[in-house]
Structure formats: C-alpha cells, structure tokens
C-alpha cells in the first residue's frame, strides 16, 4: 500500500466545512420544492453559510476503532465525507496514514473504503455483479476477486442463493452485509463506517458488529465509526468523540467519558454523558437538522 510511515491512521487538524444554504429552508418553508411558488420563493430566498464541521481536531491510531457519536445533522457524515475525499475542507488539514486528502487524493482512495447508511448499489445488478465492478475499480484481478468474494460472503453468512439476485430483491440487512463485503474486498487500511447498522434488525446488527471486531483483530484495520447507537459505540470503540453542532464536545474512552459526568457515586450511561455535555438526548436532532446538511 502506498502510505507514509505514519503511526497515525488519521490526523485531523482544525478541519472545518460549511455550506451555503437558503435561509428559507432553515425557516421551515419549502427547501426542495420544484413547483410553482415554492420554487420561486426558494430562488428569491437569501443564502447564508452554515457550519457543518467546525475546527475538529483528533487523531486515530493504527488498528484503533474510533467512534463518533452524535444526533442527526450534527456533522458526522460531513466529517466522514471529508476524510473519504468526497468533500473539500474549507480549512484545516486531514491526513490518512500521512497522506493529505486534498493533495494526495488518489493515494488516499487506495487505502480507504466506506460503508454508508444508504446501500449505494446498482439496484438491478446482483451482489456479485456489483462487487465485480468494485473489484475492477480497485484494480483486483478476477481470480483474486472470485477467491476473496467467496471467503467474505461465507464469513458474513450471506446465503449463496442470494449472491446472484438483484440487490433490490434483498432485505435491508442483506444489502448492508453486501456493502460491508464490498468495502472489505479492497482490504482497506482505514474503514469508514457511516452508521452501518442503522435500520438493521438486532441479529444483523450484531453480525455486522462482530465482523467489524473480527477485521480489526485479524487484519489490524483501523475503523472510524459514526453512530447514534450508544451500545454499539460502547461495544466496539476504544475511544469515542461526541459531536454536536459540528464541534467535538468531548473525546475519550467510554469509561473516562462516564467518569467525566459521574456525580454522587452514580454510574452514568453514555446517553447520560451525551445529555450532560450537550444539554439534550441523542434522539433530539441538532437544531441544524433540516437545513439541507447531512448528519
């Protein structure tokens, strides 16, 4: 793999990203309407810049599973997109194994892969066809692909009769397993998991979580996980950052985060930690949600 001799898998220094959004959208009036007065109002509405990620600093060690907890609209997905080279930061520096995500974009792309909350597949194509396309994009030869894909599918317990079915005929859980399989196919050094278990049933959720632990243990893969599932974060992550309004409000091990807010001998949960640090629960969205920004 083409990466610097860095002991840090990920370095994020002062990363910021803001988007221009229409004020109308933030005031609850039609933001996406394409008809009549809604569209007209949208065009006339003045714009403003909204911070999605604001001066975020953190590092992730090689082989670590690092979690980012935050409600919808807090900036989790924007941060993942910045690292995944899909967005350009307004300010700050992001390095993946010592490679700059702007200047060395192509090299960064060779060592990362991403699983997003939505299954990003050609819906009519089968799992095998989608993964074959991925293998070609990542420069794998087909012999290597066929051996790897079988091993990964078996490991994920994806029934062989589902391998050749169109993705649109698979359940959400199976689709997400295929998305994980596709990410593992390129043996990434840094795996970006953007709410990979959202919407999965408890059994599928557990299977995906076990797989994340397996690949970290067996391959030393570094994992950056965003979630709003407290138990998931606690089970998988060695350290957790809590993001609110685009800023990290806390970053530590789960145990230390709990200690930080513990009072009078009580044993707080991660949800208590989040509530005390941000003033609200995880189920309450960030005030910026609905402004056209992502999580």
């Amino acid at each position: 793999m083409d990466c610097r001799d860095s002991d840090k898998a990920l370095e994020c220094k002062g990363a910021s990203k803001s988007f221009r959004v229409r004020k109308l959208a933030r005031n609850g009036l039609p933001a996406k309407s394409s008809h009549g007065s809604g569209l007209f109002l949208r065009w006339l509405s003045p714009t403003e810049r909204v911070d999605a990620v604001k001066e975020v600093d953190f590092t992730v060690e090689r082989g670590e599973i690092f979690g980012i907890l935050g409600p919808n609209g807090s900036g989790k997905s924007t941060l993942i997109r910045l690292i995944a080279t899909l967005l350009l930061p307004d300010a700050g520096e992001i390095k993946v194994f010592g490679l700059d995500v702007i200047k060395e974009r192509l090299k960064v792309r060779r060592v990362i892969n991403r699983v997003s909350v939505e299954a990003s597949f050609f819906k009519k194509l089968s799992a095998m066809e989608n993964l074959s396309y991925a293998a070609r994009l990542y420069g794998m030869d087909m012999k290597q692909f066929r051996a790897s894909v079988k091993e990964i599918f078996d490991r994920l317990r994806l029934p062989p009769d589902k391998w050749y079915e169109p993705m649109e005929d698979l359940s959400r859980g199976l689709q997400q397993k295929v998305a994980v399989a596709r990410a593992l196919l390129s043996t990434p050094m840094l795996l970006l998991l953007d709410e990979p278990t959202t919407g999965l049933d408890p059994v599928s959720k557990k299977e995906v979580q076990n797989l994340v632990l397996d690949i970290q243990r067996d391959h030393g893969t570094t994992v950056l996980l965003t979630t709003h599932d407290m138990q998931e974060a606690e089970r998988l992550c060695s350290r957790i950052a809590i993001i609110d309004g685009g800023r990290f409000v806390a970053l530590d091990t789960p145990a230390n985060l709990k200690k930080m807010v513990a009072k009078d001998g009580e044993a707080p949960t991660l949800e208590d930690v989040f509530f005390r640090l941000t003033g609200r629960g995880l189920t309450e969205p960030y005030a910026g949600e609905g402004n056209g920004l992502d999580g």
């Binding site: 997109r81 792309r109 060779r110 990362i112 991403r114 994009l137």
Partner: peptide
C-alpha cells in the same frame, strides 16, 4: 439516480 455516485467517485481511479 442509482445512488452510486459517491462510491464511484471515491474509487482510486483517475
């Protein structure tokens, strides 16, 4: 439309 734009555009190809 297919929802694959991010996956294709973050692939390590020119």
């Amino acid at each position: 439309w297919e929802g694959t734009i991010e996956y294709t555009f973050m692939a390590p190809i020119r």
